[in-house]
Amino acid sequence: MNTSPATGAAPAGRAGQRSAEPVIEVGGLGFSYGGRQALSGIAFTIARGEIFGFLGPNGGGKSTLFRLLSTLVPMQSGNARILGYDLRGATRALRRRIGVVFQSPSLDGKLTVAENLAIHGHLYGLGGARLRERTHAMLARLDVDDRAGDLAETLSGGLRRRVELAKALLHEPELLLLDEPSTGLDPAARREFFNLLTLLRESAGVTIVLTTHYMEEAERCGRIGILDQGRLVAIAPPGELKGQVGGDVMVISGPAPEMLAQKIARQFQVRAVLVDGTLRIERPRGHELVARLVDEFGGEIDSVAFGRPTLEDVFVHLTGHRFVAGPREKNGR
């Protein structure tokens, strides 16, 4: 393996040059399990220093994409380069430069926090004083240094996540990949965890790529890619995506939504889309319409929800169906 250009500290001039090249570059990526197509036609690039989130329902292809990017499964079709390494080639050198946090715990519960980190360090070629120093630094940065001697299984879910993060960052990766990092955390712990990621990006200069099915988490990413049924249906900053939805969003439920949609169309020349049994109208200055709708069809409306578009609205706008977070899990991811 040719290591000469990659070894040694990058000179200052080179660092600048490298930051221009994308961290991840993917084109025409596809993947199937047996006959089931899990991903197809995926293309995107992620720049150095981004916090990029892949948002999608379970079964959308997030986990498969994560497995491909983390070199856990081999490439099938398309091309992908991470940190300049072709994913089709040998991945050993690349692995040294990425940190991976899995959805399910990868800590050994029967080992202490420090022991877990030590093994991780050894696998990545860290040992001796360097390992001690890195372990201490990471545990301190993630504020779990007082638990170093505790068995991992005795830690709370939130603390365990922090240790997972400390472990993934131990070998100073340039890219951090996280699969549903906040699974099993309550909303407060989830927010805190994300704050931590933001902080790490600034202090450690890592590029962060994560998958999530939490809207509020996706909301906080610099850019997001929306995955649905194995396809990447949009890539943009969350604010921009919400801007694509035409103004305000109204969700109307009633006993006969289809008939109501026709009446609305006739009366107001407004398109109401039927999505999973409710009517949706996207329209600027929606509040005026709400008042008139209720005046006109009050008897046929059970409820009207009105608001600024959320990422959920974006998802519906793009895919024509609702964002189902849970129940599809059974059919595999």
Binding site: S70, T71, L72, R92, A93, R95, R96, I98, V100, F102, S104, P105, S106, L107, D108, H120, L123, Y124, G125, K167
Partner: peptide
């Protein structure tokens, strides 16, 4: 290897 410690080993630079 599917949902535990070995996941981390599988993505580490180890044969």
């Amino acid at each position: 290897r599917r949902q535990g410690f070995l996941q981390g080993v599988l993505v580490a630079p180890i044969a």
